[in-house]
Simulated scan of single mutants.
Amino acid sequence: MDDWLKDSDEVEASWLTVDLAIFTLRDDQLMMLLVERGLEPFRGKPAMPGGYVQKNETLREGALRELAEEAGIDGSRLHLEQLGTYADPGRDPRGRVVTVAYLALGPDLPDPVGGTDAERAFWAPVAHLEDGTLHLAFDHREILTEALEEVRRRLEYTAVAAAFCEEPFTLTELRTVYQVIWGQNLDPSNFRRKVLNTAGFVQPTGQQRLPPTGRPAALYRRGQAWLLSPPLLRATTSGRRD
């Protein structure tokens, strides 16, 4: 990726990059995919996977290629959508670089394998990024903050929570997604009622899963709806959302 900087003609045509904010749940923790940069600038610093878009590929193709090259992950498994464009003049010390950030979500994704100019790739707890334990390169902290809020908001109004679940899933597993990402405990009975009363959110499979203890749990898959009506709203610090 960074070898392009050696060719001035390529640099002039390649000031457009993609970065990926990729989230998954592991051991009931929200995790983000990071790479340790192997080259300057920010050598040795953690960053989101990403890089320059090649001349003959779309933004999405560039994002999927960089993900495969830097982390060894097949992006076809992911829910992938554009998050936003970041173009502050000082965001990259090499020059004026505009990046299109992608938001990517997947269920319990595999261990990544670093490649190209990434020394290694790893899953990092989002809590360690929010509390400052890990400091990200470039403006990736800003992208992270906006990506997290976008995920939390979309859980309210869309069925994107199902992207974190391997199908078929139980309502307890779906509720865990909301609790981990929102950082709120949800009443199991109220959550079940809301999900089942939201048309098209989930579809019963007619099957059950037998847990080590307790009663069998009904299994579901994602339904046909994308927008949730009514939405599932977070509680605010002062009580319920309007």
Rank of each mutant, 00 (worst) to 15 (best):
V11P: 02
V11F: 08
W15V: 15
T17C: 07
L25S: 02
M32T: 03
E40L: 04
F42K: 06
E57A: 11
E61W: 00
G62N: 03
A63F: 05
R65Q: 01
E66V: 00
A71N: 00
D74L: 10
D74C: 01
L80H: 02
A87L: 08
A87H: 11
D88T: 09
D88A: 14
G90N: 15
R91A: 10
D92Y: 14
R94P: 09
V113L: 15
A118R: 01
A118C: 04
E119A: 09
R120Y: 05
A124Q: 11
F138D: 09
E142A: 04
L144D: 05
L144K: 02
T145Y: 12
L148Y: 12
V151Q: 03
Y157M: 06
A163G: 10
A163C: 14
E167D: 14
P168A: 08
L171P: 05
L174K: 05
V177Y: 07
V180T: 09
I181L: 04
W182P: 00
G183F: 15
Q184E: 13
S189L: 13
G200M: 05
P204V: 12
T213L: 03
Y220M: 10
R221G: 08
G223V: 04
L228E: 06
L228D: 03
T236M: 09
S238N: 13
G239E: 06
